[in-house]
Design a binder for these strands. Structure first.
Length: 679
DNA sequence: AGAGTGGGCCTTTTT
DNA sequence: GGCCCACTCT
């Protein structure tokens, strides 16, 4: 241990040092953006280990796999050895590990399946059929809307009725049937020996609540609990922490209420705001020195967030030197906005900047479309975060479905997917087949099933069965995947997709990934709970310098030298749908804050003045730009003149009839040419 | 009745 | 690009 010799006083500032040294008991660390939050946690973990705490006594909870990996890596770097045995991961992945141990107590097998969102939707569809809900006569919420409502109710621990009334007012008189759907959905999950993401959290809480011995054992094991991004915890997660810390109260939470952006999945900002009340004797520390951004960028962030009422007062102090004010760039259209960003990026590259040190952030995933066109046109390599993840791509999930039924023949969602792939088999036939499949106890039994289905479906089922028989003699994930690759599924892929070579390649990659794990169960858990594989793979494969495109949500915790925040127009950001929610507006502002504080050196806000296809919509700049003092920003005109639409001036234009139009009015398309004159 | 197909529609954020 | 719907075909 001596050769590691971490000199804490030298490597940490006094604020951080205090947390590391005095972090026993309940501790609240309010860590502003870029204040060395990760650094502080990792040093705290290293410190504990140096003090003789065993790795398996430390539980480190994060929200993303990325954050977990990064922290563990940094701890390893500090200590110059792997902290083997340390429990680190997302709430969901840690819950999964524990539940595998105790599944039988809760009425699941140790092999329970984890359902992702798509699986949940599929099951919900079946429930709709089963209850013969007439989805056509009256417009009924879609299965994904239903899943959203059910999930929110469970995470927020509110009655479903209340949630439906609030978030889906049209469905008020449908409450009873929605409640029945929710119950049916639960039944299906149980029969399938499956848990969805919410079940992982709810079940671990049940385990801790109702099994005092288990609670005691775990609480005594995890003597030191550290939680990152605590502002994003929901009621259930907060309770899990409380139960786990029962024996000792050593809970160190780190968070920034200004960056709480997950209320849509029932995060409770009150968890962090009221932490000191719930844990008497809480020591509170504040990290307010910002090591990331220039004073100009921080000035904007501080100004913006000060408009929020519900928060701990704080102001970030910059230590970087002055550079330049954030730019505000209005563009005539989404296409011009994209052109500007691409051009500016090339300029920065010419000045020696590297693409991987640049990011374009946006509110909603689909906002990036126009930009992607432009980037492709100009051969600017980019990496898209926030789209479909590797494990969510259709073909990967198809192949996975074969593997899943092999592991758990009761996995209804996987069966539905597989059967649906066969030509001649739709939801109705699939359900019929499932009735027989459901009788089987083992996978081998399924393979011997003699089924007579409809004439058209017969061939599909026979084909599938052949493959199932082949799979039945194998157990290793990679073998299973390669077997599928030589089955009727390959023909399906080839027939279905023009780009089937790429997709085959993906599946081959998938098999390579699977080779790392021999145990089927571990493999499936990893696939369900890991997000990163795709991104990691593309970077690894090319080693190429790539621009990053990301939703703001996914950018949290990351930083770049140059950041562009696009689509900062009224009606797009803040998202109109979000501002309908109770505290939605302030949360949108926090999102803006998160975006702003990602930038180290240069920041640009861009927005289109118009959008739409058949009708043209005029946009004001986003409120979040308008409410900032003019002198904090540098307006840029794409026409070499001061733009009419500087942030504090309304857009003033005239429509076809010469009528004056202000703000986000809709006007006819013939107006397009005039917009150009505006700039 | 149920499967398949073509076209019109919209798109918040995620483990 | 994905999802749902309406229409057509078996």
């Amino acid at each position: 241990m001596r050769e590691t010799a971490i000199v804490y006083e030298k490597e940490l500032n006094p604020e951080q040092l205090a947390v590391v040294r005095e972090g026993d008991g309940p501790v609240l660390v309010l860590a502003g953006a870029g204040s060395g939050k990760t650094r502080t946690i990792t040093y705290r973990v290293a410190y504990l280990l140096e003090q003789g705490v065993l790795p398996q006594e430390i539980l480190l909870l994060t929200f993303t796999n990325k954050a977990a990996r990064e922290m563990l890596q940094r701890v390893a770097l500090l200590l110059k050895r792997e902290p083997v045995g340390l429990w680190g991961g997302t709430f969901h992945s840690v819950a999964n590990r524990l539940l595998r141990r105790y599944a039988s107590e809760l009425g699941y097998s140790q092999n329970f399946t984890i359902l992702d969102q798509e699986d949940s939707h599929l099951l919900m569809k079946v429930c709709l059929k089963e209850l013969r809900v007439d989805t056509i006569a009256r417009k009924f919420p879609s299965s994904s809307t239903l899943c959203g409502l059910v999930s929110y109710a469970r995470n927020a621990q509110k009655p479903l009725r209340e949630v439906v009334e609030k978030r889906y007012p049209n469905g008020r008189d449908l409450v009873t049937i929605i409640e029945r759907l929710s119950e049916t959905y639960e039944v299906h999950k149980h029969q399938a020996d499956a848990m969805d993401f919410d079940d992982l959290l709810l079940n671990i809480r049940t385990l801790l609540r109702e099994f005092p011995l288990v609670r005691r054992r775990l609480s005594e094991q995890f003597r030191f609990i550290l939680v990152d991004e605590y502002q994003d915890t929901n009621t259930i997660q907060a309770e899990i922490i409380r139960l786990l810390s029962e024996a000792h109260g050593n809970v160190l939470i780190v968070g920034d209420d200004a960056q709480s952006i997950y209320s849509f999945r029932a995060a409770q900002i009150q968890n962090i705001l009221r932490f000191p009340e719930i844990y008497p004797g809480t020591k509170t520390f504040r990290l307010t020195t910002n090591y990331r951004s220039t004073p100009e960028i921080l000035a904007v962030a501080n100004q913006s967030i000060s408009h929020n009422m519900d928060q701990f007062e704080k102001e970030l102090v910059a230590i970087s030197r002055s550079l330049e004010k954030p730019l505000v760039v209005p563009a005539a259209s989404g296409a011009e906005e994209a052109r500007y960003i691409a051009t500016r990026i090339l300029e920065l590259v010419n000045q020696g900047g590297s693409l991987s040190q640049m990011a374009v952030l946006f509110r909603a995933a689909f906002h990036s479309q126009a930009l992607e066109f432009e980037l492709m046109k100009r051969d600017i390599p980019y990496e898209y975060r926030g789209g479909l993840k590797f494990f969510e791509r259709a073909h990967v999930k198809d192949v996975l479905a074969y593997v899943r039924v092999r592991a758990n023949p009761k996995d209804e969602a996987a069966w539905l997917r597989l059967l649906g792939l066969q030509s001649g088999v739709g939801l109705a036939t699939a359900q019929k087949i499932l009735q027989s499949v459901g009788q089987a106890q083992t996978f081998e039994e399924v393979c011997t099933l003699e089924l007579s289905v409809g004439k058209r479906a017969q061939n599909g089922w026979d084909q599938l069965k052949k493959t199932l028989v082949k799979l039945s003699v194998q157990l290793e994930p990679a073998d299973l995947i390669r077997t599928v690759l030589t089955s009727e599924y390959r023909d399906y892929l080839e027939a279905q997709y023009p780009d089937f070579m790429d997709r085959l390649e993906d599946v081959e990659q998938f098999a390579l990934f699977a080779e790392q794990t021999e145990d089927l169960q571990t493999f499936l858990s990893e696939v369900s709970l890991t997000d990163e594989y795709g991104a990691a793979r593309t970077q690894e494969a090319s080693g190429e310098d790539r621009l990053v495109l990301s939703t703001i949500h996914q950018a949290k915790g990351l930083e770049w030298d140059n950041v562009f925040v696009m689509h900062l127009a009224d009606g797009k950001f803040p998202s109109p749908r979000a501002t309908e929610e109770d505290a939605g507006f302030e949360e949108e502002r926090r999102l803006f804050y998160v975006a702003t504080t990602r930038a180290r050196k240069r920041l640009a806000f861009t927005y289109p003045l118009t959008s739409g296809y058949d009708t043209l919509i005029l946009h004001q700049p986003s409120v979040f730009l308008q409410e900032l003092p003019e002198l904090l920003l540098e307006p840029i005109s794409l026409r070499g003149r001061t733009p009419l639409a500087s942030p504090d001036e309304p857009v003033v234009v005239f429509d076809d009839l010469g009528e004056r139009v202000e703000g986000s009015a809709q006007i006819g398309k013939s107006f397009l040419r005039n917009v150009d004159e505006l700039l």
